[in-house]
Each structure stands twice: as structure tokens, then as C-alpha cells.
Computed example of a mutant assay.
Amino acid sequence: MKFFRSGPLLTVAVVVVVIARGHGVGGLVGALGGLLLELASFQVGTLLGVLLWRLRVRYVIFGVGRELRAWSTPRLRIALCALPVVIRVGARSVRSPVRLRLWLTGLTSALVAVGVVVGAWLVGPFGVAVGATACLAHELWPRRSAATTSPGWYVFSLPRVSGREAAEMEATPLVSAVVDAVHVGDLAAADTALAVVVAAHPDLVMTTGAQAAVHTAAGRYVEALQVLGAVVGRDDLADRDRALLMASMAGATASAAEVGLMPASVGVPAAARAVDVAIGFGLPRYRLLGTLAQLALLRGDAAEAVRMGRDSADGSGDALGRADALATVARGLMAGGDNAAARAVLAEASELAAWLPRVAGTAARLDVS
């Protein structure tokens, strides 16, 4: 079922059903409203499950597009965007048993969504009920890729997970200690926590990801590439694993070229190839905009770097990711001669993570310009 795409089929089905029942344009508008309502119900259900089953909320983002207002701590980011039509909730399990907590959270999300559909059929317009039902069917279809993991995967597929994939999940609490230390800029604590992870789970892909994250946060881009390169050729990796590893390799390669650890003539094409491979394994292009913005800047296209950097920052649910993207925007503005705008952008990046190597490096360049 790898190539099955339920979304387009359900969209066609909704249009056919609504028109066949004689509800016309009004029915289609209602179906769109039902779709958005149901998507929101899944996210609200996820948030409820996170609170009930003691996971940790990473971000709550209201809307899409340009960020209007945000509230950030090292562990949580809440943002309001220009088009408040959807809500996104991100969470991770920091307590054992990890899989049970994830399953219960997925089940809670699904039950809330089912309740909304039942309510739509009982009291809502026909179009709303049809749209919500189609969305429910789509989201409960179990699928997991580099792009997304559906609520249905957590409910129906997670209980059958075993082997390395199960071990990866159960290692999350240890890895979370590394992530927490990185997010507050305590790299010494991150190295200490990482040593515990490596000792306990030396062969997990999650361990490699944690190693690469710590090296990257410390500006040790060559070391990050070494640990990533050591596992990317393993034959037990799923496409999702390969996509995420190649995305990390692309980012580390671009950063290494940016600071002169490798020639740009070598690093830029290598990073671009890694981006293409990550996309080929299913990672959406928008998830790679931060790296693509860096590459545009290295190629001398400052305007494109600023545009993609802003898009990357607005799409990030992570304070460090947003800070890194804003550093690229500031560098692009500097390259275009607008140091005043660069300082304004860098001020936000510094508020989020002044210690981050690319943020600190950009600030140093602005200070001498």
C-alpha cells in the first residue's frame, strides 16, 4: 500500500456525494469547514491526551503563514500565525512506558475526533458532516513516513511495533535529556546525557540523531557528518530513517561549508544532493527550507535565502530551528546591504538562542560591519 493516496480519493468522494445530494456550493463550503473542524479536533484530542497521559508538549501553533506573536521557553513554544485556520500540536514522551503513553494519546485524539463526527451528523449541516467524516477516515488510515504519522498509526499499528523500532521509542526519555540540555544551551550537560544514551543504546538511529544534534549545536559540523555517515548506509533503515538522516547530513554539510570547514564548491553540491535524497525518501521540501536557504546564500542568491529563511522560520515549531532560520535571514539581509533590517531579525534570533553558533557568528559579523 506504499503508493496508496487516500487524500485525493476522499476529496473526490466528498465532492461527488455533496453534489449528488443537491447541496451545491454551500455544501462544498460546509464540507471544507467540516474538514478543518475535524483536523482541529484531532489536534485538540492530542493535546488532551498529552495532558492526561503525561507526555510533554513541545509546541502549539495556531494557524499557518507569517508568525504574528509567539511565547517561547526552552521546552515549549506557542505561536499565533496570520491564517488561524488550523492548529498544530507537537509532543514527545519523556516517561516510560513510552509506547503505552503514545498509544493512549493517539486513542484519546481519535475518540475526540469520532465524537465531533457523531455530533456533526446529529446536529450539523450535511456538508459539514460529510467533510468531517472524510477527514476522520483519512486520519485513521494507518500511515507513517518522513512526512507525517497519522493518528490511525498510533491507534492501530503502534501496538504491533517490535524490534529496533520499539527500542527507538523506548529510548526517548534518555534522548529527551539530551534535547533538553541542547535547548537551553548547556552543551556540557548535553554531552553528559549523550554519553548515557550512547552507553545504553549504541546502535539506535535515535542515538545517532542525538549525537549529530549535539555536535551541530556546538558547531562541530565535521563530527556530525562523521556520525551520520557511519549509519546512513545501514540496510535495516526504513525510508523515514534515511530521509531524516539525509536531512541532517544536508544541514551539517551546508553549515560546514558556510564556516569554511570544507570548500563551498564541494559542500554546496553535496548538501544539495543530500536534500534531493531526503526528499526522495519522503521528506517534504518545506521541512528542508532552512538548509535550502543556507545553500541559496552560499550560491550568492541573498534574496532567495531571505525568502526561504523566513518561510522556514514561520514553519518551525522549534525555538532553535526558528533561531537558526532567522540567522540565515539576517545574513541574507546583510549580503543585500540592509544591516538595519538584519539587526532587527537577529534580535529575535538572539532572544531565542543567542548561544547558537550561527546566531552568535552572525552577531559577531554585524558588530564589525
Rank of each mutant, 00 (worst) to 15 (best):
M169R: 09
I78L: 14
W141S: 12
A305V: 02
R92A: 15
M206D: 11
A213E: 10
T73K: 04
V94K: 10
V116D: 05
L320K: 03
G309I: 03
A296M: 03
L326I: 02
A132H: 09
S6L: 15
E258Y: 06
S150N: 06
L237G: 03
A344M: 08
L295C: 00
Q43A: 11
F126A: 07
R287P: 11
Y221G: 02
S96T: 14
A270Q: 15
T108L: 07
A341T: 02
S157R: 07
R143H: 11
H23G: 11
T108Q: 09
S72V: 13
D203W: 14
R285M: 13
G309S: 06
L237Y: 04
A113W: 04
A363Q: 07
R54P: 03
A171D: 03
L122D: 11
M334N: 08
P74L: 07
L122W: 12
A193Y: 04
S72G: 11
R58N: 15
V198C: 11
A243S: 09
A353V: 04
V179I: 05
F281D: 08
T73D: 01
A360I: 02
D276M: 09
G163A: 06
A257K: 05
S96L: 15
G280C: 04
P97T: 04
V17P: 10
H215G: 12
R58D: 15
R273M: 05
V161L: 11
F281H: 06
A293V: 01
V85D: 08
G282L: 10
V222P: 03
S350N: 06
S157Q: 08
A341W: 09
T192P: 11
G27N: 09
M249P: 04
V175G: 10
D301V: 01
G233D: 14
V44L: 15
S162C: 11
G280R: 02
A91T: 07
T207K: 02
L244W: 15
A82Q: 13
F42T: 12
L52M: 14
A257Q: 00
A146E: 00
L289C: 03
S109G: 12
T192D: 15
A250F: 04
R21F: 15
I87R: 04
A218Y: 00
M308T: 10
A20I: 06
L122Q: 12
G30Q: 00
D314C: 10
G233S: 10
V306F: 00
V14A: 01
W71V: 14
A193T: 07
V306W: 00
E304P: 13
V89K: 00
A188W: 14
L346M: 03
S248L: 14
R21E: 15
V25D: 13
L36V: 06
L261D: 11
F62S: 08
S162W: 08
S255C: 09
R331C: 09
A254P: 09
V368S: 11
D239P: 13
I279H: 13
D338E: 06
L356A: 08
A274S: 13
A293Y: 01
P84A: 04
S150R: 05
P151S: 01
R343A: 05
G106D: 02
A230N: 05
V198P: 12
N339H: 12
T291C: 02
A129Q: 00
A319T: 02
R56H: 09
V12A: 15
R242I: 08
T207F: 07
F281W: 14
H23L: 15
R77D: 13
